[in-house]
């Protein structure tokens, strides 16, 4: 497959979205070094942008995504507003979840990013449920769940894969194999590092793709999504990529071979798409710079909005547990 098979306009859009994710997370790196700007541990997908964008571009707005602790790219690709994400990451009342999620578990139902879980391996069973509802109602929508190579060691992933193909549910399992689970490399935590090969055991299609080539990810996703949508049941994509930063921003990767990092940085998905569009003459250097500046302005605006937004009131912590307006103490009345 040649990336030229993907429409030029679409490639340009994918480039913009990948740059937005990269710059959004670079802003988080910057802010995480300032005192009291961000709350909690920032977990970034720097270097993995092509997976989020390539997969989500193959979806319709009504399709559902289920994300994990490394979610910012997935949510932005699905169309979440960076302003409300940034405010959420800052724990602000204007955040997409009123400051109740913080950086790790943001749900954006407005764009069908319905569930995000930091329980490693939690996503696939949730996706089974979402896809069941889609099938039950006779919709053609599908559910995509993103999980990592680390999550592939969880039993829940096995349960979800078995059940989803048993019932031919429209789930696209996307394993972002970034070669690390915490400080354990793939060979240290996974008996067979070839996650896509597992698909055979469940009788579903499974393919490995270069996760740092957005055109390839998109093209494979298109094919797999079509199968899910047409009632053929689930499919598995293993997108091979690399975690360019630590598990979280407190992790300085003392255990990572610097040469390996350098090699992967040469495979940066943004750089690759950029070079490829330039060499084909689809865009000029000046146009790319304009895109960069526009995206930076959006990210700066988001950071400003978040910074200037108020925190929620302490007692508002009591709200949003139940659908009804009561707390456990008020039940006494």
């Amino acid at each position: 497959m040649d990336s030229r098979e993907v429409d030029a306009g679409l490639r340009k859009t994918m480039y913009e979205e990948m740059v937005l994710i990269r710059k959004f997370e670079e802003k988080l790196i910057e802010l995480s070094q300032e005192k009291d700007k961000l709350v909690g541990m920032q977990i970034l997908a720097n270097g993995q942008e092509a997976v989020a964008v390539g997969i989500v571009k193959a979806l319709k707005p009504d399709d559902v995504i289920v994300s994990n602790h490394r979610s910012h790219g997935h949510l932005l690709a699905k169309g979440a507003n960076p302003k409300y994400l940034m405010a959420e990451i800052m724990g602000k009342a204007t955040g997409v979840n009123k400051g109740k999620s913080g950086t790790l578990h943001m749900a954006v139902p407005e764009v069908n990013a319905l569930m995000t879980t930091t329980i490693v391996g939690g996503g696939p069973p949730l996706a089974v449920g979402a896809a069941f509802a889609q099938q039950y109602r006779g919709e053609s929508n599908i559910t995509v769940v993103f999980f990592g190579d680390g999550a592939a060691a969880e039993g829940s992933v096995h349960e979800a894969m078995n059940l989803s193909n048993l019932w031919k549910l429209p789930v696209l399992f996307v394993c972002e194999n970034n070669c690390w689970a915490g400080a354990q490399s793939l060979s240290e935590h996974c008996a067979v590092g070839d996650i896509a090969a597992r698909a055979v055991g469940y009788g579903m299609p499974g393919e490995l793709v270069d996760g740092n080539d957005v055109a390839k990810v998109y093209t494979l996703a298109k094919k797999m999504v079509m199968g899910c949508r047409n009632g053929q049941g689930p499919a598995l994509i293993e997108a091979k990529t690399y975690r360019m930063r630590g598990h979280g921003e407190h992790d300085h990767q003392h255990y990572v071979d610097k040469k390996e990092l350098e090699e992967w940085s040469r495979l940066c998905p943004i750089k690759r798409l950029r070079n490829n569009m330039l060499s084909e003459g689809l865009v000029s250097e000046a146009q790319l710079q304009t895109i960069g500046r526009q995206v930076e302005a959006r990210v700066d605006e988001a950071a400003k909005f978040g910074t200037e937004s108020p925190y929620p009131l302490p007692e508002e912590a009591l709200e949003d547990v139940w659908v009804e307006d009561f707390t456990m103490q008020q039940v006494a009345q």
């Binding site: 319905l114 069973p125 996706a127 449920g129 979402a130 069941f132 509802a133 889609q134 349960e159 059940l163």
Partner: peptide, 15 residues
């Protein structure tokens, strides 16, 4: 786990 996940995911889509 999948049975409970089925319930969680299906319920938030309205079932």
């Amino acid at each position: 786990a999948a049975i409970a996940g089925l319930a969680v995911g299906a319920s938030t889509l309205g079932l």
